[in-house]
Design a protein around this nucleic acid. Sequence first.
DNA 1: GAGTGGTCTAGACCACTCA
DNA 2: GAGTGGTCTAGACCACTCG
Lengths: 231, 231
Amino acid sequence: MTDSPYQVIKRSIAQGIAAGQWQVGQALPSEHALVRQFSVSRMTVNRAMRELANENLIRRVPGVGSFVAVPAAQSALVEIRDIADEIAARGHAHSARILHLARIGAPADVAAAFGVSVASILYFSRILHLEDGVPLQLEQRYVAPHLAPAYLDQDYALITPHAYLSRVAPLREGEHQVRAVMPDSLQTRLLQTEVDEACLVVVRRTWSNAGLVSLAELWHPGARFALTGKF
Amino acid sequence: MTDSPYQVIKRSIAQGIAAGQWQVGQALPSEHALVRQFSVSRMTVNRAMRELANENLIRRVPGVGSFVAVPAAQSALVEIRDIADEIAARGHAHSARILHLARIGAPADVAAAFGVSVASILYFSRILHLEDGVPLQLEQRYVAPHLAPAYLDQDYALITPHAYLSRVAPLREGEHQVRAVMPDSLQTRLLQTEVDEACLVVVRRTWSNAGLVSLAELWHPGARFALTGKF
DNA sequence: GAGTGGTCTAGACCACTCA
DNA sequence: GAGTGGTCTAGACCACTCG
């Protein structure tokens, strides 16, 4: 899957940081030391470290060394909210129907977003979230197996995937994309939308320190859902 | 400044794309060709191209080639940005068609959002923003007359309403709501959307220190526009 | 089989920092 | 001067696609 040498080194460093093996601000091994440790050439180590720096996991200072970065200031730009919490906050009842839960081969677009090869094994869940029994969100989620090995064994009627993943792989950063899309027939049926009703789709990718954890497609009925924000 | 070989190559390709030297979807020169053209090693070309791919400027397909990526029109979820700036930042040309500019009586829903009585006088503008001649945003804006008395006298082909309002009534806070809606026939015609193409609608209210300045409905073609955000 | 991108090697030179 | 990261070279092997 993700087993080329530079990725092995990246993961090793990232997990070491996540595990607290190195404290914030502390110096990491030099490139030369990693060359010896992993028995690779310096270009390979360099690429791993450069990418970690791009991801703001480490900070590199020419002539000095590489250091564990201070964790990104988590300002409340766009908070990531749990659908169950949101519904509860409105004083309504949340329920969930688990429609699909399995390991699957990554489709081409998902593989590209995940940075893995097509047909790599991912965990997949399709869950319909209802508010007072009315469909509000169809959640289709792809999860990196090695970052949440027990993902398929949870009972998502009791805990949402987002809540579970937050526990086993705390999120470091995320990214969403919001689109307006017409649903296909499956989605229309599940969300019980009218003909000619669009869907608001949020595609959300979340990273823990160890890498990309999950890609979620959240489909909402256009007539019954809006995203709001203040600034 | 930024004159190392891989950066020179990056800039060369990026500018070529911006200048239309290669069309969207078109194949770019292979790494081997670039090696000859720039007289560098393949690792150097590879780094340039890999970074362009990370920046979503090009798409690379192993065994096939590198191609100019479809320029995903994207806009920030949280920050409020001027549509003209956004388009310019992508290296494209912004233009605007002023469709309507007048004082009108507030419709019921707008009056409610503004906190004024129905049929109160508001300024109204309807402007179509185009990216390289293609419609990207239909802006329908209601403005409080006493907070921007000269609103109707501006030339919105030269300055966007948002830019003008930012000058005369600096925004203190704002609020948006994002929805997926099917356009009506007027909107379909103006935005040149396909049948069965939804619109992503942002309704944005902005306040200056003196009160609610403006309510804007921003309609975007669903197939050509997405909002993005990071956290 | 020819062409493509993905990755790696084993060196190298440079500018920089620190003691 | 010893150590660091930034960058580059001139090859190489691989998996993949396409005709």
